[in-house]
Design a protein around this nucleic acid. Structure first.
Length: 216
DNA sequence: TAGGCCATCTGGTCCT
DNA sequence: AGGACCAGATGGCCTA
């Protein structure tokens, strides 16, 4: 069984997601082994497999006109399908991780190191894209656009009905429109060039902090 | 303890 | 036939 899973994962080029027993001998998945099958699920699966194994192989009752339901997948195909599904979901989650890095984060004072949920990430991204689109399509200069932005919603993203102030950490700001000009309270204009992404981007970002702090 | 979020399993459907 | 995609079900984990 275990050997079977290992062979399967090797053939599919996928990591072994779960094992029948952990090193400590218990069925409890190790913390951090987030893709392990839950203990109860393992037991359920084992029970089902046992039942399936002991079940006599019955064919459709001869001649009965029942709606031909496709036969359930064989154990092997079910396992491969599950592995593919996990792989597919993993890709989706990796895409979410990438997206989380691109969209501005929620102020850490509000959400201390909490990972954005998927739905929040999507909503933030939508709002962020529309904000960027507004910047790009504006016939005004970006400077005017910013200075006209008296409404907070120019700088706040809404998610789940709540306004979320942008965090000033604009790391990896590949989507940030270039040549932003920031109108500081003292009337000085500070152009901020977010492109190209350079290691000393943080130098620029320090100029952005006091600006954004007004909205947090 | 309820509710939110998530991972996983599963069967159905569509596509190649 | 087999893979991709999807949605429902289930159960674990975490927080208010």
């Amino acid at each position: 069984m275990l050997q079977y899973d290992e062979e399967l994962s090797q053939r599919l080029g996928l990591p072994l997601e779960y094992t029948d027993t952990n090193n400590n001998g218990s069925n409890k998945p190790l913390r951090g082994d987030k893709y392990s099958l839950r203990p109860r699920s393992m037991r359920r699966r084992d029970n089902m497999e046992e039942q399936e194994d002991t079940k006599p192989t019955t064919k459709s009752r001869g001649g009965l006109k029942s709606k031909q339901k496709p036969a359930p997948l064989s154990k092997y195909r079910r396992k491969t399908a599950n592995a593919r599904e996990r792989s597919r979901m993993r890709e989706i989650n990796q895409a979410f991780e990438t997206l989380r890095k691109v969209v501005p984060q929620i102020s850490p004072t509000q959400q201390q190191n909490e990972k954005l949920t998927k739905i929040t990430t999507l909503r933030l991204a939508m709002k962020y894209i529309s904000t960027l689109s507004a910047v790009l399509s504006s016939s005004e200069s970006s400077q005017d656009l910013f200075s006209d932005c008296s409404e907070l919603d120019c700088f706040l993203l809404e998610s789940d009905g709540e306004s979320l102030p942008l965090q000033s950490d604009f790391s990896d700001h590949s989507l940030t429109p270039p040549n932003f000009s920031v109108d500081f309270a003292d009337g000085s204009l500070t152009p901020i060039d977010f492109t190209p992404l350079s290691p000393d981007l943080s130098d620029h970002l320090t100029h952005f902090d006091p600006f954004l702090s007004d909205f947090s």
